[in-house]
Computed example of a mutant assay.
Amino acid sequence: MSDPRVLLDIDGPIASVRLNRPDKLNGVDLALLHELIAVSRTIRADRSVRAVLLSGEGRSFSAGLDFGSVMSDRTRMWRGFVPNPLSGQNLFQHACWTWRELPVPVVAVVRGHCYGAGLQLALAADFRFTTPDAKWSVLEAKWGLVPDMSGTASLRELVGGDVARRLAMTGEVIDGTTAHGYGLATGVADDPAVPARDLVDAILTRSPDSVAATKSLLNRTRHARVRTAFAIERRLQLAMFRAKNTAAAQKAGAKGETPAFGPRQFGRG
């Protein structure tokens, strides 16, 4: 039996997800795509999980699509392009975007290579912390392709149109410091796991329902009309007023105490 392509460890409220093909610089093959989706479903179903740390085993986050492996089974590859009629996402898109759709924040820790499919996976996280010398690239341009694993939706959200076009059209390789300057990375550090964990610890002090609802609110209103955005705000706020974790936060806040939250109730499980 082959080793799992994606490792999942749950320690209390934190799920650690690690791409596990270090000998291939965590190159993405079809099996890894399916495992990313399966692991995200496991996390979604576990209401005790309140944050995800996403990283790669070995010296790289991911060097991108493993073309040799994927192209060796063209029937499965082409089948992977067929979109789900309900979500409108195909296999390649869903494996990345499922992390944006999780009802808990996802924080990517980037070292080494962050190319192509790996970059699009990192961009689908809610936050990204990188080493200064990590290598980032929308590498599809090198192969005469376009970013097609949800990358265009992420790029247009994070950077200006001219920067998105430059990165996608040239496939140039930039370092982590430049990625941070462009807005692709949330922060840069010699050990990016440290600020990533600091952010997670800060989020854990807040109601898991409030965090989940806020993520949903920002995702759903990103391109909504103002009237629609206001309606979504109202519905989510009413849900928060009824949440037990809201009452716990307010009670503890009034007493100057640290709240004791129960499992997440908001968001699909």
Score class of each variant (00 low, 15 high):
Asp162Leu: 07
Leu8Gly: 02
Leu123Ala: 03
Arg234Ser: 10
Leu145Ile: 04
Arg225Gln: 15
Ala164Gln: 02
Val163Ser: 09
Asp191Ile: 06
Ser48Trp: 00
Phe67Ala: 14
Leu36Glu: 09
Val6Asn: 05
Phe230Cys: 08
Phe81Arg: 10
Leu139Thr: 12
Gly27Ile: 00
Met169Trp: 12
Pro259Ala: 07
Val200Met: 07
Val82Trp: 03
Lys24His: 11
Glu57Gly: 02
Thr228Trp: 04
Pro22Gly: 03
Ala249Trp: 05
Asp126Ser: 09
Ala249Asn: 00
Ala15Arg: 06
Asp9Cys: 03
Arg222His: 15
Gly262Asp: 11
Phe67Tyr: 14
Lys251Leu: 12
Thr186His: 01
Leu238Trp: 06
Leu102Phe: 08
Gly68Ala: 10
Asp11Gln: 13
Thr75Ala: 14
Val49Trp: 06
Asp175Arg: 02
Ala168Ile: 09
Cys96Leu: 11
Gly256Met: 08
Val146Lys: 12
Asp23Phe: 01
Gly88Ser: 09
Glu257Leu: 14
Phe266Ser: 11
Arg206Gly: 01
Asp9Lys: 13
Asn90Ser: 05
Lys244Arg: 15
Ala248Gln: 11
Thr258Val: 13
Thr98Trp: 07
Phe261Trp: 05
Lys135Ser: 10
Ala134Met: 04
Leu121Glu: 02
Arg165Ile: 01
Tyr182Lys: 02
Val200Gln: 06
Ser60Arg: 00
Cys96Ala: 15
Leu158Gly: 04
Leu238Tyr: 09
Leu119Trp: 02
Thr178Asn: 01
Ser48Pro: 01
Ala260Trp: 00
Gly176Ser: 04
Arg5Ile: 03
Arg47Gly: 05
Ala185Glu: 01
Phe92His: 08
Val70Tyr: 04
Ala179Pro: 01
Lys215Gly: 11
Lys24Glu: 12
Leu53Gly: 03
Gly118Met: 04
Leu53Asp: 03
Val163Cys: 02
Glu140Asn: 11
Gln89Asp: 13
Val17Asp: 00
Phe67Gly: 00
Gly256Tyr: 10
Ala63Lys: 06
Asp162Gln: 13
Gly253Pro: 01
Ile43Gly: 09
Phe81Asp: 05
Ala254Val: 04
Leu91Cys: 02
Ala202Ser: 13
Pro13Ser: 08
Arg100Val: 05
Arg165Val: 06
Ala15Glu: 10
Val194Gly: 02
Arg197Leu: 12
Arg225Met: 10
Asp148Leu: 03
Pro195Met: 07
Asp23Ala: 14
Asp201Val: 06
Met71Cys: 07
Leu236Glu: 12
Ala31Pro: 01
Val146Thr: 12
Glu101Trp: 10
Ala247Val: 11
Leu236Ile: 15
Val17Phe: 00
Ile10Glu: 06
Val200Asp: 04
Arg264His: 10
Val49Gly: 08
Val52Cys: 08
Ser72Met: 10
Asp190Lys: 05
Val82Glu: 15
Ala260Ser: 12
Gly253His: 07
Arg242Ile: 00
Pro22Ala: 04
Arg234His: 13
Glu172Leu: 11
Pro4Leu: 01
Val159Met: 06
Gln89Leu: 15
Gly171Lys: 07
Ser137Phe: 07
Ala196Thr: 05
Arg76Ile: 04
Glu57Thr: 11
Leu217Met: 15
Phe92Cys: 03
Glu233Trp: 13
Ala248Ser: 10
Leu217Phe: 14
Val194Asn: 05
Gly187Met: 01
Lys215Ser: 10
Thr258Ser: 09
Val28Ile: 15
